[in-house]
């Protein structure tokens, strides 16, 4: 089924379409959320919140504004970041500042069999440090180009092309 058709059925509150979209994006969102909250239970909590919110707010998605993936990625990032700002989360004493998605790929307890996480991890390691960070900030943390440039101490004008090259490298690694 075409993605456009699937999405419009989902917007008509079609349960099957919702299930299919969940299967398409749940792992990705789970990864993004976990990367931010770094807690299995909390990540699963946020996962539920994200897809429930997507269901209720399905009307707010419009293809002219971007990709469906980008839309739900935005919901997931915001929900996860909101969670880390909650009082209960802060009291748990987690220090998230120094952690990157690469750490997750390197840990051995990844039981996800749908993607070759270990294989991808091996490739991603080969990415330059700046690339890992650009991808982390722009895609997984939702930083703006300006915030990313400040964080990495590189000119804002070069972010776009730097990112283009990093994604090109990533594509050759994961899409071969």
């Amino acid at each position: 089924m075409q993605l456009d058709t699937l999405i419009s059925q989902f917007q008509k509150k079609d349960e099957k379409a919702f299930e299919e979209l969940y299967n398409m994006y749940s792992d990705s969102m789970h990864g993004v959320i976990y990367n931010i909250v770094r807690d299995h239970e909390i990540a699963e909590e946020v996962m539920q919140d994200v897809f429930i919110k997507a269901w209720h707010k399905s009307d707010s998605y419009n293809s002219s504004k971007g990709r469906f993936f980008t839309w739900i990625l935005n919901i997931a990032r915001n929900a996860a970041i909101d969670k880390t700002r909650s009082k209960a989360f802060k009291n748990s004493g987690k220090n998230l500042n120094t952690e990157f998605f690469v750490d997750i790929l390197e840990t051995a307890d990844n039981l996800n069999d749908k993607v070759d996480a270990i294989g991808i991890g091996r490739y991603v390691k080969a990415l330059g440090e700046k690339c890992k960070k650009i991808i982390e900030y722009l895609y997984f943390k939702g930083y703006t180009q300006k915030e990313t440039s400040e964080e990495l101490d590189i000119p804002i004008g070069t972010i776009k092309t730097r990112n283009r090259n990093c994604i090109k490298d990533l594509r050759t690694m994961v899409l071969e």
Binding site: S26, D27, Y34, D109, V115
Partner: peptide, 19 residues
Amino acid sequence: TAVIKLSSAMAPRDNKHLL
């Protein structure tokens, strides 16, 4: 697809039960 593959690899465990 590249971004989805990368982020999916970061998913800590199965999430079928969450659906």
